[in-house]
């Protein structure tokens, strides 16, 4: 019953707030990793959005750290770029046990931009397309995936199977043979391999999210003076994904995780409504 009432609140148009997002068209290159502090961002209007603790799906966060996010959008006819800023007192890149990464995600409807599905992960047969940036993933992209010795420098290990310090007369094992002893990798879980800064994810409801193998998006974040500034750019048109069209309206939603405060998975702050987004023509 409580869930139903909440759901009603979600779809009530009166509940949507703040100004609409407008993506101005500019002549900049966006199909690459962008500079979060590039000068062209000065011409993009800034909209402030409210976020609240994810209220639908257990486990829910007791409270979340992020209540406001500043959003700017620009596009160049082929790619659209979002600049997202929010306060975070500490930079968290995960690594050790029980440590989680700071992250932000954009979400777009797939079937209908005017009549989007549930803002929380879409619905069965009505998917959403997400662009999930993590500080941890960005570290992978920039420096390579942290080895266990980078995470725990004082760790002592005699040897790993198939990974002997001295192979003697043996040729040594292939990467596949070594990965057979690392279960996530052996199962081909994308989570277990070095990432690019942004994951593209499709979902049709709670718990259904799956990482896309193809990717046409870029991300870059910088943490400075207690604030993250993250830019995510994506192709306007994604095959079997969300398609944004110049001169037309669409919808977008946002979620933020402060890893240092144990925010991960369903423990997130999000915009509880679709924010209208207009992709301006020239």
């Amino acid at each position: 019953m409580k869930l139903k009432v909440l759901f009603l609140l979600l779809v009530l148009p009166a509940f949507s707030q703040a100004a609409d997002l407008v993506a101005k068209k500019v002549k900049e290159e966006f199909n690459k990793v962008l500079d979060p502090y590039a000068a062209y961002w000065l011409q993009a209007p800034e909209v402030e959005l409210s976020l609240m603790a994810q209220p639908m799906m257990k486990p829910k966060p007791e409270k979340t750290e992020t209540s406001l996010m500043k959003v700017q959008v620009l596009h160049n006819g082929n790619y659209i770029a979002f600049r997202l800023r929010w306060k975070d007192t500490e930079k968290s890149e995960a690594g050790k046990l029980g440590e989680f990464s700071d992250a932000v995600a954009l979400e777009f409807p797939v079937k209908s931009n005017e009549n989007p599905p549930s803002v929380i992960m879409g619905g069965k047969g009505d998917p959403v397309h997400m662009f999930h940036w993590r500080a941890q993933y960005q570290y992978d992209e920039e420096h390579g995936k942290k080895d266990i010795k980078d995470i725990y420098p004082n760790l002592a290990v005699d040897t790993y199977h198939m990974d002997y310090p001295d192979n003697g007369n043996w040729q040594g094992a292939t990467q596949d043979q070594k990965e057979a002893y690392m279960h996530g990798m052996a199962a081909g879980n994308p989570q277990s391999f070095a990432k690019r800064a942004v994951d593209e994810i499709m979902a049709e409801g709670f718990g259904s999210s799956a990482v896309r193998k193809d990717q046409d998006s870029f991300g870059k974040g910088e943490w400075k003076n207690g604030e993250w500034t993250v830019v995510i750019s994506r192709a306007l048109k994604r095959d079997k994904g969300s398609v944004l069209e110049e001169g037309k309206g669409s919808s977008v939603a946002f979620a933020v995780w402060q890893g240092g405060k144990d925010e991960v998975g369903s423990r997130k702050a999000l915009t509880l409504y679709w924010t209208p987004l207009k992709v301006e023509g020239l």
Partner: peptide, 27 residues
């Protein structure tokens, strides 16, 4: 192992603490 995303909810929830997070495979 192919679907887990390493949120660690099982690590929190198991009272016997028999779910364990792998920092290398991130699941």
């Amino acid at each position: 192992q192919s679907r887990c995303k390493g949120y660690g909810e099982c690590v929190r929830a198991c009272p016997y603490k028999k779910s364990m997070y792998n920092t290398h495979t991130r699941v």
